[in-house]
């Protein structure tokens, strides 16, 4: 394995943080502490982790309704994330966004999006900004298999390809769009096949293998950074949890889910690989787990103890006063 010990530890830290964060959110939601809708990223951790390990703080990402994993992997603060999910004033968006609308502009995380397929063109615009400035920032757009059937997919990919923008389109094909199976709504076996229509590379990769994702993303990021234009990277994965927390999941069997989880859990895949190769020890992994657990407990405490926004904050941040010179 061509990865340093530090890199491997980082992979595991990020994947395990996402897993535990999401399990915690699940528990807190069911316990009635979290309002609204929550979509969990469990089972897809290797994708955000492998892609983001190739990005700089100054690179941009756009995310989806299932955005906690992307946000964590980009380097967001867990306390402010959890507080936002609770609707608290100390959250990233001062409680105005919630689970589906977390952003952190200081790390190039341009926001999760409640509109499926709403992120493509924001990412294209961020890539255009970088290109106009002559900077080598790249922009990554995450989206689901369901989102690939929005018209914005076509408009965004074509524009990015026509203008050779530094954008990487990462499809998380988890086989389900809400209750609808992928192949009942989509004519192609691989969404990446559509790349041909835009004259850009289309790459299919095992989304539950962080090493494979890392390497595929590395090639796409290098290509984008050096002026080669966009790549459509499709990561094959499986949505382990319901579409949202509380989803009765009448559309699939428990056995199907269990079989997927038991045979193809990205965290387990990683563990087996590093332990078999003697790259990390059980102890290394446990140390990471202990630290992550503590950080998540701290985030929950922070969220619980934080105040809700005050009534007078209702209208804050709607308009920014004036402008640069007016």
């Amino acid at each position: 394995m061509d990865f340093s010990e530090e890199q491997l530890q980082d992979f595991y830290r990020v994947m395990f943080t996402i897993r535990r964060f999401e399990e915690k959110v699940n528990e807190l939601f069911l316990g009635g502490e979290i309002p609204g809708f929550v979509h969990l990223y469990i089972g897809e951790e290797a994708i955000a982790t492998g892609v983001m390990a190739n990005l700089r703080k100054t690179d941009y990402i756009t995310s989806t309704h299932r955005g906690h994993g992307h946000t964590i992997a980009k380097g967001a603060d867990l306390n402010r994330m959890m507080a936002e999910i609770f609707g608290k004033a100390t959250g990233y968006c001062k409680g105005k966004g919630g689970s589906m609308h977390i952003a952190d502009f200081t790390i190039g995380m341009l926001g999760a999006n409640g509109v499926v397929g709403g992120g493509y063109n924001l990412a294209v615009g961020a890539g255009l900004a970088a290109k106009l400035r002559g900077q080598d920032q790249v922009s990554v757009c995450f989206f689901g298999d369901g989102a690939s059937n929005r018209g914005t997919f076509h408009e965004g990919l074509n524009m990015a390809a026509a203008w050779k923008l530094p954008v990487i389109f990462v499809c998380e094909n988890n086989q389900w769009a809400s209750t609808t199976p992928y192949r009942t709504t989509t004519s192609v076996e691989n969404i990446a096949d559509r790349a041909t229509g835009y004259g850009i590379p289309g790459v299919v990769v095992d989304g539950n293998n962080v090493f494979a994702v890392y390497e595929a993303a590395q090639a796409a990021v290098e290509r984008a950074r050096s002026g080669g234009g966009p790549t459509l990277l499709e990561t094959k994965t499986y949505r382990i949890k319901g579409h949202f927390v509380g989803d009765p999941e009448m559309y699939r069997t428990r056995e199907e889910v269990q079989q997927q989880f038991e045979t193809n859990d990205p965290l387990n895949n990683f563990k087996q690989a590093v332990l078999n190769a003697n790259s990390l020890t059980e102890k290394d992994l446990e140390e990471i787990e202990t630290a992550v657990q503590a950080a998540i407990e701290e985030a929950v405490d922070f969220a619980r103890e934080s105040p809700f926004p005050k009534p007078e904050e209702l209208f804050e941040d709607l308009y920014v006063e004036g402008g640069e010179t007016l």
Binding site: L122, G125, A126, A129, L132, S139, M159
Partner: peptide, 10 residues
Amino acid sequence: GAGVGAALAG
């Protein structure tokens, strides 16, 4: 959309 994205990116 790209106008909005470009604005978000400065």
